[in-house]
Design a protein around this nucleic acid. Structure first.
Lengths: 352, 352
DNA sequence: GTGAAAGCGCTAACAA
DNA sequence: TTGTTAGCGCTTTCAC
């Protein structure tokens, strides 16, 4: 049998209620009593029962972390989630919360609300959420019930859901401007699926940068992959002829993985990034540093974003801040990382 | 106020205990009663309170997942943990457990036992544990108290701790044999720190393979890094002259990250893997596929190991299996993945 | 400042 | 097959 509060109370010569007060440091108490209780607890090696506490307080103390289902590709092969998760972990520790990891099911079942109703979690951060009907419905339900949640790297234009997002429009603009400054002018864009708000944000940034430069936006220069290396690899075949015939001289990819797939495939075709065409990726993943030539990319502070999401959750629970569109979306800046794939060839041996 | 069991009981016209029985599907009950209760519960949208259940059952239903602190380098940049975590998630879902993520502190504080005493977790899987005094003490305490835990990718020679490990001795042997078969004969070994059992296992495998081939083991050919890319990069400088003067013709690295660091640095020195020297890494990480030339490596089924760890925990809790040295260690096989860095030069343009 | 006591919502003997 | 009831170990009014 474990030592209970009762034993501590007896040894300290106080009531059980006093033990609670001391341990939770709540209400008034005489310093001497406090010390006596603390001493008794330490002597007995008393450890409060978290289950009983949670039950009595009607709070689990858990932050749910909802991870997307990524078919085939193992979830965390993705650098992205690893960083965010670490950031969440750091902030959760500071706030004294525990993390309950929830792997979303493949289909349907976006029943986030039940996690709250069961009281398994007090709040949650949702990763990899997308703008599809079921997801919107699930989030709307959470909001309606007043369950605190925070999205990361995704927002909904017309809904004031709390979210920590990065400024991907600006990131894309900067990336494309960089290519333009380097001398490229026929820039294709390899985007991700439109149900991610960051895809549409990047598209806007891409278009703005071209517009600023007085260039016309060509729809035939816009391609859509699914953020996997494979999809970049496959799209490379469509882009090859355009690059070879000079109608495209650079590619901006919505993430590093697709950029790397493209880079690998074009190399098989005899085209080298930074030599025969310019290339900019997005995410500043480990791979972008490792690949050769190294990939110019846009760094997103995923780690920090994870931490911010937890912070928002905490302040949400304290005051009823943030549930309006003004403050719903926290936007963090991104940064261009210039490496080799965006070098502009000095000699005019650009064409094959 | 949420709907409680009492409301369901009233609507179904049964006692609260019967509601419990039906919902937990325990004990005998009339089919008709069961249906009535189920119907009432569905009608009211009743959701059992997990906190109350956990408290009454004196079980949290949580598996703790303990993650190592990795200074500076962000934890999950490591492909390794991502895979294991996904595997754990999959198995936990099947077993009906929740996952409580625990980021270990930097120093001291390996107080795993308190998590059990607080009843935050019923069992746990410990990642990234190493053979140092504090860790041994913490694990010994867990074992002494009978708290179920499972290590992954680490074992302790003289302790019958439950663990799911991969056969790294065999992996190293296979890797080195492969280099020998390819024609390399002066093989250096870049190992990780000895407090990881997989480091010492690989050393044994390396030595065995050389011994089998009738080669003498040269201590000057054995280097120790810390599994980071940086350490591989740095050790490359020591290896460069040996490769250049022909006293080393291949390197076996205890993980991909160090191998990649080495490969990058030696390239800066003008040496290309698979051309001027042979190279085999370990882990089959994403990066090993991306780097050019692609890295020959050893695949470890991390995902499966995570799942197996959970399975062991489950059977541990059911029967008192496994607490003897016979069955403590589950050993899974690894597999050599041959790529470009271990090609043996056809022409004799090996030397610079 | 401190104690007494009423729950929190469920499980699990034990009776019936 | 079902109902009654006594907890589970803590928090939190409300008195004193």
């Amino acid at each position: 049998m474990a030592i209970s509060r009762k034993d501590v109370a007896r040894l300290a010569g106080v009531s059980e209620a006093t033990v609670s007060r001391v341990l939770n440091n709540v209400g008034p108490m005489k310093e001497e009593t406090k010390q006596r209780v603390l001493k008794a607890a330490a002597e007995l090696g008393y450890v409060p029962n978290a289950l009983a506490q949670q039950f009595a307080r009607r709070r689990s103390g858990n932050i749910g972390v909802i991870l997307p289902f990524v078919p085939k590709v193992r979830l965390f092969s993705n650098y992205y989630f690893s960083e965010i998760l670490s950031g969440i972990g750091e902030a959760a520790k500071i706030s004294g919360s525990d993390l309950l990891l929830i792997f979303r099911e493949q289909e349907g079942e976006r029943d986030y609300a039940t996690l709250f109703r069961k009281q398994k979690i007090d709040s949650c951060v949702i990763l990899g959420s997308t703008d599809i009907a079921e997801e919107r419905a699930a989030l709307t339900e959470l909001a309606a019930e007043g369950f605190p949640f925070c999205l990361v790297n995704q927002y909904y234009e017309d809904e004031p859901f709390i979210t920590v997002d990065a400024d991907h429009a600006s990131g894309a603009r900067t990336a494309v401007r960089h290519l333009l400054e380097r001398g490229y002018s026929k820039i294709a864009f390899m985007n991700g699926p439109p149900e991610y708000s960051n895809s549409t944000d990047r598209l806007a940034g891409y278009q703005e940068a071209l517009f600023e430069a007085g260039l016309t936006i060509q729809n035939t220069h816009i391609f859509t992959g699914n953020y996997s290396r494979k999809s970049g690899y496959e799209l490379a075949d469509s882009l090859f002829s355009s690059i070879a015939d000079g109608s495209v001289d650079a590619v901006f990819s919505a993430n590093d993985r697709m950029a790397i797939g493209l880079q690998q495939r074009l190399k098989e075709h005899g085209l080298e990034a930074g030599e025969h065409y310019g290339l900019v990726g997005y995410d500043n993943s480990d791979s972008s540093r490792i690949i050769n030539p190294s990939l110019t990319t846009v760094a997103v502070p995923f780690y920090e974003m994870g931490g911010l999401a937890v912070d928002r959750l905490m302040s949400l629970e304290e005051h009823q801040e943030g549930w309006d569109s003004q403050t719903a979306r926290t936007l963090v800046p991104v940064e261009l990382i210039v490496r080799e794939t965006s070098e502009y060839p000095k000699q005019s041996n650009i064409r094959l």
